[in-house]
Simulated scan of single mutants.
Amino acid sequence: MDWLQVVILAVFQGLTEFLPVSSSAHLILVPKFTDWGDQGLAFDVALHLGSLAAVVAYFRQELRSMATAWLASLGGARGNADARLGWWVLLATVPVCVFGLLFRDVIALGMRSPLLLVASLIGFGLLLGYADWGHRGRRSEYQLTLRDALVIGFAQALALIPGTSRSGITITAALLLGLSREASARFSFLLSIPVILLAGGLEALGLFRQPQAIDWTALGVGTLLSGVSAYLCIHYFLAFIRRIGMQPFVIYRLVLGAWLLWVFWP
């Protein structure tokens, strides 16, 4: 890989992992408009590691409180809001793990169509706009119920369809359930931690089956850039949606989808 490829892919991963615009769509599309070859599993793992480090660093205080309360609840202590939130994050992760394992080959081989990307970008973009216009409430992520967590968890499984956006569909579901914009985004970001960890772990296992030379300098730079861009994205995204909302991202998805439809229409 050349350095331009390293920088662009790392920044794309860091930004689109948490913005409701679909990281998979952008990472599929970049090679289609360049002559870059596949970046390899090792680089994919490095980018995921950077995104994971960013979200863990940003929510380190919340995660510390959640982990302490969750472990206490395992020992029989009465669960508080932090313990419940920890349970909801874990339970909401189960559907995407189950469907991801069951349909992994179908997703990898049969769902890379540009027209499917267009349909997902536009369709789920309109759904995000609908949720943001009329269904946002005032509840925080600490007021989620078991039912809420399961609904958001099954919505997250839809992100296995390229173009959907994991953050976009989970924020949409949370808004429809009456969470505030910021609470919807914060729960979505917390949900990303086990998902990125599991996805990165699966990719890392693939490295043992496909031994290859590793450019450690490119991996280090990619991890750093992915982490920094992801951290800044989380920080400014939460501040942005508090004032303005999701509509700019809805418009971006519609414009991108329309452009791709024009480019790829048979």
Rank of each mutant, 00 (worst) to 15 (best):
M1W: 03
D2H: 09
D2F: 06
V7C: 08
V7F: 04
L9V: 04
L9S: 04
L9R: 01
F18P: 04
V21N: 04
I28V: 02
V30I: 12
K32A: 10
K32T: 01
G40M: 07
F43K: 05
H48N: 12
H48R: 13
L52C: 00
A54H: 04
Y58V: 15
R60E: 14
L63M: 09
M66D: 05
W70S: 05
L71E: 13
G75N: 09
G75F: 01
A77L: 14
A77S: 10
R78I: 06
L85C: 00
G86K: 02
L90C: 04
L90T: 05
A92T: 09
V94M: 14
V96T: 15
V98S: 11
R104L: 09
R104D: 15
A108I: 05
S113I: 01
I122D: 00
L126I: 09
D132L: 06
G134Q: 00
A149V: 05
I152H: 01
I161Y: 01
G163V: 05
I169L: 14
A174K: 00
L179M: 14
R181E: 08
A185C: 12
S188R: 07
S188V: 07
F189Q: 09
S192V: 07
I193V: 15
P194W: 02
P194M: 11
V195M: 15
I196L: 15
L197C: 06
A199R: 02
A199Y: 02
L202H: 06
E203Q: 13
A204E: 07
F208Y: 06
Q210D: 13
W216Q: 13
L224A: 13
L225K: 01
S226P: 11
L232H: 05
I234Q: 01
H235I: 02
Y236R: 13
L238S: 05
L238A: 08
A239W: 02
A239Q: 13
F240S: 08
R243G: 08
G245A: 09
M246N: 02
Q247F: 07
L260E: 00
W265M: 11
